[in-house]
Amino acid sequence: MLKMGGDFLQLILDTIDENLIVKFKGELDHHSSEASREKIDEWYYDKLKKNIVFDLRELNFMDSSGIGLLMARYKMCSENGGKVLIVNDNQNIQRILRMSGILKIIDVYSSIDDALQNSIGE
């Protein structure tokens, strides 16, 4: 497991089978997304993972930079035959996800277990 981050955002990375689990705590904006996306991709490729589960439940802020990060990872996973799944129950985060249109291509689950069950198959 990897924990990193400054005052604004903590990034916690873990792996379960062919899934990379990315947990964010704090604020995901342009500044904090720059540093985290490199680390996410490094783990994804180095550890030969297929899917990414983003746990957004402990984010207290996200703007369109977060949407950009999710969309680019969606593209990356699709090219690799995998998918992106989101775990979220936070209403403010849900609003920006909804307005961005990203929910048309990425499904949201209420727990990591729930997401992992849906990451297998197809």
Partner: peptide, 14 residues
């Protein structure tokens, strides 16, 4: 290339 979503002004408007 900077992974911008292009949603900034839309977010402000909404």
């Amino acid at each position: 290339e900077l992974e911008r979503s292009g949603m900034g002004f839309t977010v402000m408007e909404t």
